[in-house]
Design a protein around this nucleic acid. Structure first.
Lengths: 187, 187
DNA sequence: TATTTTTGTGACTGATTAGTCAATCTTAAA
DNA sequence: TTTAAGATTGACTAATCAGTCACAAAAATA
């Protein structure tokens, strides 16, 4: 890890622990074992660091999901695979996932909106669009189904991290949650 | 509205607009047309104001939902009525609803957890528990169904406020969303 | 090796903040 | 009207913070 990555990782941890404004830049630098000046060499302002971290994590998540999308067919199995990848990532990276939530419920979000890559290019969004076109999915607005799909992942994630279950129980529940979601959105 | 209520209403608006730490107590006092000292007469610290606002809004929402729960039967209609009340409240009070989200994704939340009234006493939680007992609802953990139910409301709320629909379209969608949710959780 | 470029440093500053408190105003009881 | 209790005020303070900058170290180039 180079200094920039160390700063990002430290900032992530502290922002989730203490909030954006509850975390001083000097504190990030100290925990990352660099000078405050170094932090400002890599990020012109604290806000730039906050936004960079958001976009970095979004990209990490999307890359993980894209990597695991073997099939490009439009089928229940594709949806399930995408669902499983996303939940797996969220559970393997709970702090990252929490940061995304924290950011998107903060006032920074509306500022970031214009720079966020078009939702319409997201793999899940495209898959849903195609699913609706071939009448596999209910004939409703794509972004509505998209909202419910991601909401289901949020609900499932929140339940699992709030209750410590065995790995088998966890996997069963994830599969069950997908079947429920599918019953909800299939045509 | 007395001074305390004006302070709370002003704080709500500013916290949602600028975040907790992005809002100075002096700014709240100024916009509420009171002296900074007055704010601290009603709330010992800024944090106390933040927590008080959270609990106040939670209570307002719960009161609204309880008022509109005419039937006490355990039926699909009861679930629908509860679903509709909650969504109606969230759409009628988007800033309040946003504050709840912002708070519960902030570091304040874990501090507040012990003082939050037991989730198990929430009307929705009780209804789900009873629904599972009489095998109207899938035989799964109550708090799991609860998580998915509230997540569905989040997803629906988010979609509606992001897309301005006519009142009829809105109502249609809410009804549709409930039917989908029901298909998902019914036994 | 000598020179230039890049990277890193941390003491410093001007601005901002939460919270205080002695003085003033308002209200209502005596 | 007088008095007392409570409510309100806003100038003030000690602390904290984001961001700067002159300098130094390290790395790359000649």
């Amino acid at each position: 890890m180079n200094k920039k990555e160390i700063i990002l990782a430290t900032a992530l941890k502290l922002f989730v622990e203490n909030g954006f404004h509850g975390t001083a830049t000097a504190k990030i630098a100290q925990e990352a074992s660099v000078a405050t000046g170094t932090l400002f060499n890599y990020f012109r302002t604290k806000d730039e660091l906050i936004f960079a971290l958001y976009h970095l994590i979004l990209k990490e998540m999307d890359d993980f999901i894209l990597e695991r999308m073997e099939s490009h067919s439009i089928s229940k199995e594709s949806f399930e695979s995408l669902f499983l990848s996303t939940v797996s990532w969220s559970l393997a990276n709970p702090v990252h996932y929490h940061y995304l939530q924290q950011f998107s419920h903060s006032p920074y979000f509306k500022v970031a909106l214009p720079t966020i890559e078009n939702q319409e290019e997201h793999p899940l969004f495209v898959l849903i669009k195609n699913g609706i076109d071939i009448v596999l999915i209910k004939q409703l607005p794509v972004s509505f189904i998209y909202s419910l799909f991601t909401a289901q992942i949020n609900g499932l994630h929140y339940y699992i991290i709030s209750n410590d279950l065995s790995n088998e129980k966890q996997m069963e529940l994830i599969k069950e949650a997908f079947e429920m979601l599918w019953k909800m959105i299939e045509d």
